[in-house]
Amino acid sequence: MKDKDIMEFRWHGRGGQGAKTACLLLADVAFTSGKHVQGFPEYGPERMGAPITAYNRISSERCLVHSNIYNPDFVIVIDETLLASVDVTRGLKETGAIIINSEKTPHELRTLLGGYKGKVYTINARKISEETIGKNMPNTPMLAAAVKVSNVVDSDNFIKDMEASFRHKFKTRPHVVEGNMKAIKKSLQEVCAG
């Protein structure tokens, strides 16, 4: 496989915030668009609130590599407080981008990123999810932001696929579908570049 045919993502979150679920959902939407996918969390002793990492490789041919990802194209930080304790930009390509769940602007956060020179995006996933889903569920907005920034799949197709997937998953709870779809559409618009 040629290097340019592959996109690599690294997710940082805390146990219980849905980083693994977001990672698997990204694999799902990329698969639905005809890609080869890998979605895998890094496992250790699991506990609520502890930092966790998950990864995606998305490519046009099957990717054979089964190691962790050390030089991702995109990093997604679901919990802003991790910036203080985890080196989230480690190995991140400068041609890539980091997306952080925060109410702050990219400019305000850049100073916390150890001199990272690539693009920095922020999105207030907490606010968006509280307004649309009714509680702090940051992973759906973060997934939408990752799709928007990476363009790994087309945004319109992404909306369609997610709706179908939510309708299937929450057959008996249509209001959950509506809230999540609102969260996705709002997030696609509100992700903030800097």
């Binding site: 799902d28 698969f31 080869h36 996918v37």
Partner: peptide, 8 residues
């Protein structure tokens, strides 16, 4: 590595 990784 494979048991918990989603792939095609």
């Amino acid at each position: 590595i494979t048991s918990h990784a989603v792939e095609n």
